[in-house]
Amino acid sequence: MRLLVIEDNARMAALVADGLQRRNFVCDVAHSLTAAEDAMGGATYDAIVLDLGLPDGDGTDWLTSRRKYHEMPPAIMLTARGALEDRITGLDAGADDYLVKPVEIDELAARIRALLRRPGVRIQPVIEVGRLYFDVANRTARAGDQEIDLSRREADLLELLMRHAGTVVHRAVIENALYSFSDPVTPNAIEATISRVRRKLEDAHVTGALHTVRGVGYMLKDNGA
């Protein structure tokens, strides 16, 4: 997966790129918005890591204006300002996610992976979380080499959780994704589906990956790495 890191502090940019490379991303670095535009003319990126304050302009403004006319890969904004308002402006401007500097490379890498798992991001025939694989086209799942037999609804749920692996998926999101408006959702329906998926994962020796955050939602977590 190829990333573009746009950051004016050369040392910081090199360190971020280096850290991401060690986590199996391919990274290019641009020190200004002009350089970023040049780079994007010459290559296709899967995601952008964007610093807010750059010598030739503000990252937020750049992203907003570029989104209007160009197909843009998902962007993670890095903001040094811990300010509450700035985070929200960043997201409004079309950043898909933000991190407040100083960032942990592990966190950044995890967020990028999560972004890339989102629907509509390039063609992803297979979503991968640790030992778990989900084939989007065939709607089948396997753990390592072992097939996991899932009903349609269980498959939908597992896909949803895998796309958001490492973050808590709220119950309301699950309800909306799995049940249509006309479909009445009984309070236990989601729990029942979750426990069936959990049992099937455990049968496939994927244990302790599906977590319940009671009162909020569920999270699938890669226990391996």
Partner: peptide, 23 residues
Amino acid sequence: ASDVVGAAAPAIIAGGKTIELVT
């Protein structure tokens, strides 16, 4: 509360503790 608990949960679970929300 739902947003904050959801956002805090991954790190808490990774640390071997649990969190729940009661409304």
